[in-house]
Amino acid sequence: MVELNLSRRQFLKLSGATAATLAIVELGFDDKRAYAKTKEFKIAKTTVTPTICCYCGVGCGILVHTKKNEVVYTEGDPDNPINEGKLCSKGTTLRQLYTSEKRLTKPLYRAPGSSKWEEKDWGWMLDTIAKRTKDTRDASFVEVENGITVNKTEKIASLGGAALDNEETYLLAKLMRGLGITYLEHQARI
């Protein structure tokens, strides 16, 4: 369960103007009163979930207001000591990660030589990926090299992970090394 400081949250809901100032001041709007009104209305019956900004390494806190499977509003988390409710332009627009029409919503497959994507279901995609992984691993696996046990494949690479959660990076490293993959890299290098 989320251990939110409820009294602080109730206070913020009651004083829309304060919250609005905190949240949008970085974008330079100044029509505070009108905005406060719309915001009060918008977040009246929302669920509030704290998150941490997905962009830079500062780690600002953000509150995500949701209602019926819609992200209605996001704002700086006033309780997070790092940003105390402030956000930069990227943190401020977090909501658009959900609303953007460019979001991928289905698995896509591109066949060799093809000039287009095809929609596929998850089951087929993961089954096929697992097969490709196994085939490449099996054909390239080296158990012993110069008399030393090496248990590796040098034909598969795994890149990326700086945007993943710790738990995800842990499983990713465990799986890839578990398969014997040596080409394991991510954005810390670039």
């Binding site: 900004c53 962009y55 390494g57 992970g161 945007a163 990076t169 991510h186 810390a188």
Partner: peptide, 18 residues
Amino acid sequence: AMRGESNVQGSTDFGLLF
């Protein structure tokens, strides 16, 4: 060192470099 990505610290801590 100011990290450019939200979890490039964590992903390095968790061994995602060869």
